[in-house]
Computed example of a mutant assay.
Amino acid sequence: MIFTVRQDQLQVLLVERGNEPYRGSAALPGGFVRDGETLDEAALRELLEETALDGRRLHLEQLHAYSDPERDPRGRVITVAYLALGSDLPFPAAGTDAARAYWTPISSALDGGMALAFDHAAILRDGLERARSQLEHTTVAAAFCPEPFTVGDLRRIYEAVWGFKLDPSNFRRKMTRAEGFLEPTGERRFPEVGRPAALYRRGSASLLIPPLLRSSEIPPLSNDQSSMGVRIV
């Protein structure tokens, strides 16, 4: 799973399968491990072969192993899923057994209107939850931001991944007080409208201290919203 934020939306990279099974269906990029390869090496190779993206530029981590005996009609196949995060990644180029590769909003991939091959919808949901959780406890959100960036840029990353709006003042206060998260560049961005914004680069910290928990950032429902059955997911 390769996630990026484009046009203030969390997007995932999908491929159109060029081979059976599920030929023509949308899927996460991937393939089989070769003799003599480590899992990390296979993940980097498959990413390059199917999408022409260099995984060494991305935040890459192993997510989970999927071993349902019925998950692949070709036979018993155990999949080790990886999660990759990158800032404003380019349009991918399909290769080898992928007919095409493309970015799509993750909401479109999971809203039921798109049938993903194999058990890739379940894998994608797991990856989305991991990404959301990582933003609570680590500084990985900065991996989505081209440097230098403003606190507003960072806030829009959180909003895109978590799926709800955050209070700008409260977010700024928490981010600028977090230990080692942001490193000021001493420069400012001057927008056409509004006040200049301080520019930052990613600091040395890997953990977000104190954490920024989703449960503390979701605004309470009003009485009108409660009566209408509105909920935030």
Score class of each variant (00 low, 15 high):
180 G>Q: 06
12 V>H: 00
30 G>I: 01
101 A>G: 12
148 P>V: 01
188 R>V: 13
201 R>D: 06
54 D>G: 02
66 Y>D: 14
103 W>D: 06
21 P>I: 07
206 S>T: 11
106 I>L: 15
230 V>W: 13
120 H>A: 01
156 R>I: 00
227 S>W: 10
127 G>F: 03
57 R>V: 00
217 E>Y: 00
77 V>G: 03
208 L>T: 04
206 S>G: 10
179 E>D: 14
142 A>E: 07
226 S>Y: 10
68 D>R: 13
166 L>P: 05
159 E>P: 05
84 A>D: 08
93 A>M: 09
96 T>S: 15
153 D>W: 05
12 V>I: 12
147 E>M: 09
141 A>M: 02
219 P>C: 06
49 E>G: 01
18 G>V: 05
206 S>H: 14
34 R>V: 04
112 G>C: 04
19 N>T: 14
117 A>C: 06
212 L>Q: 08
194 G>W: 08
204 S>I: 11
37 E>Y: 05
90 P>C: 08
129 E>C: 12
63 L>F: 05
174 K>L: 10
193 V>M: 09
115 A>K: 11
210 P>K: 10
181 F>E: 01
166 L>A: 06
104 T>G: 00
107 S>K: 08
142 A>I: 02
8 D>N: 15
65 A>F: 06
9 Q>K: 10
173 R>P: 00
64 H>W: 11
116 L>S: 01
55 G>K: 09
45 R>S: 11
1 M>E: 11
146 P>M: 04
129 E>I: 13
196 P>T: 09
221 L>D: 04
201 R>L: 11
111 D>P: 01
66 Y>V: 11
